[in-house]
Structure formats: C-alpha cells, structure tokens
Nucleic acid binder design. Sequence first.
DNA 1: GTGATGACGATAT
DNA 2: TATATCGCCATCA
Length: 141
Amino acid sequence: MSDTLRNANLHTRIYAVVQQIPAGKVATYGQVAAIVGRGCNARVVGYAMSALKVDEAETPWQRVINAKGEISIRGGSGPVVQQVMLEKEGVQFNDKNQVDFNDCGWEGPNWSWLEENQFYPAPILKGKKKSPSPGKQASLF
DNA sequence: GTGATGACGATAT
DNA sequence: TATATCGCCATCA
C-alpha cells in the first residue's frame, strides 16, 4: 500500500488522506493539502474532489469542506446532499450552515499512518510569501 | 498534443 | 474590510 501510494498520482494520495477522516469529523481543503504536501494546494484538493469517479466512491468526499466551514460545491443538489450526509454522521451545522471546527474538526491522521504511507506533512508553499511566518501555518496539528 | 476548466486558501495592497 | 493575485494537478474536448 505504501509503495502504491508513493507512486500514485497526487489525486490518489489525496483520496487516501480523505479516507482517513472518521465519520462525524470534517477537514478543510487546505488541511488535506497540508497533509499530502509535495506541491499539493487547497485548490488541487478541490480538483481532486471534482475528479472523483465512481471507482473512488468509497472516498468520504463529503467530509472535506472549505476553510469557512461551509460546503463549497456549486451546482445542483451537491451541497444539500453533502450536508445531509454529514448531519447523518453527527456533524452539527449552525444557523449559517457552517461547521464548528472546535466540535467536528478533524485533527489529522496518526503520525504512524503518515510514516507508513510515506506522507510528509509540511507547510505548503503558498502564493507570494515574501515574509515567511512559520508557526502560523503550523497550527494544523 | 494542446488548451481550457474546475469543490480553495493565504498573502498583499 | 474587501478585492486581486498567485500556486497547482488531473481530466476532457
């Protein structure tokens, strides 16, 4: 499995991380991106989610939301379906249809899992960062 | 083989 | 506080 993941595409690695999110918990795109590391951005995670195929139906894509705690899917019944699925898992939404990360936020996978699967959770290179401010980004775990 | 497009997030101004 | 910009990968036409 680890070799498979290591050689896999970024999307496959993203799916592997998403599959670690337990029911009743939610993670943000940026959080998943930070775990995957290696040139993965929040946007790439979003792309990966949109590219989900039937084959990867086991991936709990509904547990990945944006940094505001809201559901980011645009069209059709997607957002509604996602919220219903999360509520079924016990995720609480407030009046603004937002998730409280203090209550349902995912703290991340186990370090042992990360090592086993050759993941290198590191601060992602963000847009033009002229004045590096570590610690701010490292608030993930 | 090339180009456009799409579930985001953080910084800079 | 709000808007603009940049980073980045896989898929499809």
